[in-house]
């Protein structure tokens, strides 16, 4: 599991710009950003360095922000790669709440997802040859 920074945001012009500036001001480097939006509000999901520190920095300037555990899996960059992963998850009885994909600097495709239910997921993934990524594989984790 890795940590994702989640930020609650209103759908107002300019809000995303302000948010990105606040993250930059906190000295945090982002690797991926995706937005789930409704007519009224959005949830911005970010993979970044030191997600815990970033959440605290955002809270201190008035954002509703937190870090959330999500699953990150390296996906082979070939046709049907993602479909094979979904088959494994389905077999383990896992529901995917949301998911998104991004590429690392070394050209690996990372599939990030929030899951509920299921059991023995890690084992099933390993058996099918998928690599569940650790924080250090994806970003510079918080210093302890």
């Amino acid at each position: 599991m890795i940590d994702q920074l989640s930020v609650f945001m209103e759908n107002e012009p300019g809000r995303l710009t302000e948010l990105c500036r606040a993250i930059g001001d906190a000295g945090v480097n982002m690797h991926a950003l995706t937005i789930a939006d409704t007519t009224d509000f959005g949830i911005v999901r970010i993979i970044c360095d030191a997600p815990e520190k970033a959440a605290l920095a955002l809270k201190s300037v008035g954002y509703s922000a937190r870090s959330t555990k999500v699953m990150a899996v390296a996906v082979p960059n070939e046709p049907g790669g993602l479909a094979a992963l979904m088959d494994v998850l389905k077999g383990a009885g896992v529901n995917v709440e949301y998911a998104y994909c991004f590429a690392t600097p070394d050209q690996r495709a990372v599939f990030v997802m929030k899951t509920t239910g299921g059991s023995g997921v890690a084992e099933a993934l390993a058996a099918a040859g998928f690599e569940a990524l650790q924080p250090k594989d994806v970003y510079s984790p918080d210093e302890l």
Partner: peptide, 15 residues
């Protein structure tokens, strides 16, 4: 207003 400590993760939770 939500509080800064608001524990959300999905759109479903906010809704």
């Amino acid at each position: 207003e939500v509080v800064p400590e608001f524990d959300f993760d999905t759109v479903r939770e906010v809704e």
